[in-house]
Design a protein around this nucleic acid. Structure first.
Ligand SMILES: [Mn+2]
Ligand SMILES: [Mn+2]
Ligand SMILES: [Mn+2]
Ligand SMILES: [Mn+2]
Lengths: 226, 226
DNA sequence: AGTTTTTTTTAGATATGCCTAAAAAAGCGA
DNA sequence: TCGCTTTTTTAGGCATATCTAAAAAAAACT
């Protein structure tokens, strides 16, 4: 009897979420660490170790025990496809279904796992081939390529420098609702009018209209194109 | 230590598919039979028995060993919600993403499990609160209520009687592609011009334009409103 | 009614994905 | 470099959802 192994290139929802987490963590550092993956996926380090072994067997990650993990070429391909789907769905929810930018992430976290190449191709077309999602993050095209808008954290701008908000790093509902409240949005015109030395907070002129005070923590999570 | 059982009213993808299968099978007969559920879900009768026990524990089915199974009131509620989601997504795919009616079922089979009340509410609104899906099947509203269009199988029409196709029973891609080919669609005007006694096939005048011959098997799967 | 066939359930496995507790490796300060 | 701390892995379980094979119940046929 001949052994035939069909590589259906199909991954479970759990595997997909791990791949995506490793992708995002690898953007920040060189490789993803077990504890960081566990925290991101709200699971336990022991579960992560289990899964990393499985993903290594499937050749989507390079895994050396105790040394962290990176995605293989195949793993990056899967991750970019997931990111593409996630962000396209976020655009759909905001542009077509009138969701606010703080409501979309959790639903997109589910929708990204729907498996239908035709669906994504048509969705992309329906949305007019958007290049950025509601949080300012770039949307990979079908080949995995995406635009990069140069930007700096709000906190690193000089006094007097003018720019526009291009993205946010923290996409939690709590943070986005805070931004809604103070009037910060993607595209808003910002300039630093003063830096408070005592606590590192910033005085920001918003859309030439009003001045607001933002904390160091907040400033770290807002990216500005100059 | 007090025992607190949160009824999160959340069901797994597998459980949802079982509930939906039982709902559809119960429409045809009084109760759903183990073997029929297994066939519908492309699984084995032994797996169905396992699951029925679990669903009975969760009080979504009335299950008496060897006697078949029906949905409880709660089970029907879940089933109608799933049917609602499935059919709304089918409308979305056809109306907004230019899918054909033979391409939508499998994708909707995945999309129906996305859990977000806001999403469904907004999708319904975005689609203009449709009452029927691309196969002519009624879409339950948020309360689980839906319209019923009276209809008979094409095979049971009298010679000379005129009607319009309102729904199809078989929604397989193979059957729908056959209908595309011969020119039958939801809303098509049909009348029987002759019944062939030899094999039970029918001569059908379509949209007052052309006459086609359809087999007994095909005729059984087309519903006509008179 | 007794026998055979069909349907359904149970028994016993397997794979996935998660957990806690314990062990092992790596990192770090003295 | 030693010993403590942190990080990571392993060991051993558990729940879900599936399967095959065997047993049991129900239905159908003489
Ligand atoms: Mn996800
Ligand atoms: Mn986003
Ligand atoms: Mn389904
Ligand atoms: Mn349908």
């Amino acid at each position: 009897m001949e052994e035939i192994t069909l590589n259906k290139n199909q991954y479970s929802l759990a595997e997909e979420d791990y791949i995506k987490a490793i992708y995002h963590l690898s953007q920040q550092n060189q490789e993803a660490l077990t504890n960081d993956i566990a925290e991101r996926l709200e699971t336990k380090p022991a579960s992560v170790s289990d899964m990393l072994k499985k993903l290594a067997d499937k050749k989507v990650v390079n895994y050396v025990k105790y040394k962290g993990v990176t995605l293989t070429e195949e793993g990056v391909k899967i991750a970019l496809e997931l990111v593409r789907k996630h962000r396209l769905w976020e655009v759909f929810l905001v542009e077509k279904l009138n969701f606010t930018w703080d409501e979309v992430h959790e639903v997109a976290e589910q929708l990204e796992h729907i498996n239908s190449p035709l669906l994504i191709e048509r969705l992309d077309e329906f949305l007019g081939f958007p290049k950025f999602d509601p949080h300012g993050d770039p949307i990979p095209d079908a080949k995995g390529e995406f635009l990069v808008k140069p930007h700096v954290p709000l906190g690193e701008m000089e006094i007097g420098q003018v720019g526009r908000v291009v993205a946010v790093q923290d996409i939690s509902a709590l943070f986005l609702q805070y931004l809604n409240k103070v009037g910060i949005y993607i595209g808003a015109k910002v300039s630093i009018t003063d830096k408070i030395e005592y606590d590192g907070s910033l005085e920001v002129l918003l859309d030439d209209k009003k001045t607001i005070l933002v904390s160091k923590e907040v400033a770290k999570n807002i990216f500005v194109g100059i």
